[in-house]
Amino acid sequence: MSAVGRTLRALPTMMKIGVSEAIAYRAEMLVWVLSTTMPFINMALWSAVSAYTPVTTAQGRTYGSADFVTYFLCAFIVRQIVSSWASWEINWEVRSGALSMRLLRPMHPIVVYGSGNLAALPMRLLVTFPVVVLLFITGAFAKLPNTASLWALWLLSMFGGWLVTFFINIAIGSLSLFMDSSIKVMDVWLAGFFVFSGYSFPLAIAPSWLSTVAHYMPYRYQFGLPLEMMTGAHDLASALPLLATQWGWVTATGVLAVALWTFGVRRFQAFGG
């Protein structure tokens, strides 16, 4: 049986294991989820700011309090789904030597990390449910896109965003095969994420220099684009070129991740990295 066929056959089992793991560590996961409550803080902040003084974009669109509520509720949902922790897993496994076990399995480790992360989705979707209810209660739902094609593209952008996030995690995690620990590299990456992805504020209301910089960085395509599409910031014509750029990033980070992993793993000596 070919390697691909073998992987496809094992995938459902891998997913089942992942789901069971997510359920077993549910309390831990809940705390993780609670630690991503920054969108709510930012929601309070920006609602207060917009109540005090009008917030307008470079295109002249005014963001009201209700717009910020929609934006940050959706930000919470997107953040739960577009997330990966493979970098921390790899760092830990390289340091403890547990990576050896993974290398023995007849599946590519990147696929295993990926299926593990994706398998947590059902639990994570469950967590986003109250926020979806909030979207209804606050009437924010009416601001979301109303055509099936935009929602289909949104799904595509979510998958693209997850892939960029996941590949970056693999790439940075693989760096731990070259150096003692790449956790700090991840910290630097995250600091950039908070500023340039649209997580802390909509990029549309940022100073022009910042949105220009953000345009050329992967962060927006990792998180900001799916969020913008969910909050109805784009129509078909403006969404398509952005999606094309996003999938360009998916390809680039994918190649980088596989390359770093392949070269790094050759250096792995089973203990102490």
């Binding site: 207060a48 504020f201 940022a206 910042l210």
Partner: peptide
């Protein structure tokens, strides 16, 4: 790195006060 963190801690403030918005009461 901690200088870098400090820089990223300040940027959101610039966004809030961008273009002379008198933003926080």
């Amino acid at each position: 790195l901690s200088l870098f963190w400090a820089a990223t801690a300040v940027i959101p403030l610039f966004v809030v006060y961008t273009e002379g918005r008198a933003s926080i009461p």
